[in-house]
Simulated scan of single mutants.
Amino acid sequence: MRFALSEDQKLLQDSLTKALADLAPLERVRRFADDNEPSAGDIWAGLADLGLPGLLIDEEHGGLGLGLLEAALAAEALGRAVAPTPFLGSAVLAPLALKFGGSAGQQARWLPRLAAGEVTAGVAISEPIAGARDGAGVAAQGGRLTGKALFVIGAEGADLLVVADRTGGLHLAETAEAVEAMSTIDATRRLTEISFRDTPAQPLAEPPAGKGALHRLRDAAWTMLAADTLGAGEAMLEKAVAYAKERRQFGRVIGSFQAVKHLCAEMAAELEPARALVWYAAYAFDHAPDEAPLMAAHAKAHTSEIGRFVARTATEVHGGMGITDLLGLHYWFKRIGLNRQLLGGPERVRETAARLQGLAA
């Protein structure tokens, strides 16, 4: 068996990386993040021309019919560019929710429009995965939703909401009582707080089947966040190495100093094995589903830790310049920070991994 990316997979990631260099250069990211632009629709429209929104949607509904490994390669490229897109919600979690729990009618209505990039979807699944806080949580009864969801992914301007209730059931809603922006460290992606008050919603799979669907969404989301962190870490390492080659101190480039060499080597040594872990977690989602929950947990927890190390170390290599807005290094730093905590920090995710292995009381 050949354990490597296929030529098509390499081409997919390379093409996306090149497209993002034009669609989402750092100055475009700055405008979205610092000028508080309402959306980055131009970036998503450009990616839609490449078929990215339909990556996981079957060909019958207008998509490409690819797997989570291809989605992870895309997430890695998006993290490398710190691109502000609704990829996680609209291209990954919403299509998977419809695949695992949607009726034929729901799939026919939404999947072609999601694949074409005509609509976007927000996903509210944080409470049953990472634990409720501040009185949050959504109750479902009689086709209606009531309650509050925090840390909702991609809901700003979305046409569709995938909502998990307290029991793990999934629902589709097209409206909400209120959608309010939440303040986070990462300005390249926006999370929201959504309130429901007797809001009409269509159920997807009901528990216990619905809880199984939620767990599949959790595994996919953890893997995508790990891939995003991997890409952001790779970008920070590349920037640190490039800076070390040009910054001069005491008449020499700082990259010639042994201490700086060691810092860069340590970052590379942490990132390289993580790539295989993330790719296998994505592969397992489709081809080894019994292994997928544990591999997704390992990928999320491990990249959360090494991502923080790489973010800190790359900033140290840049010295005082690393904390200035001039280089924009903070966009990657903060993106890694949000990925670490979103849908469960590494401590909580490791606890889930321990339970999956029967190692927790």
Score class of each variant (00 low, 15 high):
95 P>S: 12
116 A>M: 04
89 G>M: 07
111 L>V: 10
212 G>V: 04
124 A>N: 00
117 G>D: 00
149 A>G: 09
92 V>M: 06
89 G>A: 07
140 A>Y: 05
106 Q>V: 01
191 L>I: 14
100 F>I: 05
104 A>S: 10
136 A>R: 02
174 E>P: 04
93 L>T: 00
126 S>R: 10
156 E>Q: 15
177 E>N: 12
89 G>I: 03
186 D>Q: 10
130 A>V: 03
183 S>T: 13
177 E>Y: 12
213 A>G: 13
152 V>R: 00
138 V>N: 10
132 A>S: 09
119 V>L: 14
102 G>A: 09
209 A>W: 05
117 G>N: 03
108 A>Y: 03
95 P>Y: 06
159 D>F: 10
110 W>F: 12
93 L>S: 08
188 T>M: 05
142 G>K: 02
206 E>Y: 14
101 G>W: 09
89 G>R: 07
149 A>W: 08
106 Q>W: 05
186 D>H: 09
134 D>N: 11
205 A>R: 12
138 V>D: 08
139 A>G: 07
211 K>A: 15
184 T>I: 14
90 S>I: 01
181 A>G: 14
106 Q>P: 01
205 A>L: 14
103 S>Y: 07
95 P>A: 13
147 G>K: 01
138 V>A: 08
127 E>G: 10
213 A>Y: 12
151 F>L: 15
173 A>H: 07
199 T>G: 05
142 G>E: 11
117 G>E: 04
136 A>L: 01
111 L>C: 06
212 G>A: 07
136 A>C: 11
162 V>Y: 04
199 T>V: 04
108 A>V: 01
139 A>H: 13
159 D>E: 00
211 K>W: 15
191 L>N: 06
119 V>R: 13
119 V>K: 12
191 L>T: 08
180 E>A: 15
158 A>Y: 09
136 A>H: 01
160 L>W: 11
108 A>P: 03
170 L>S: 11
171 H>A: 04
122 G>V: 13
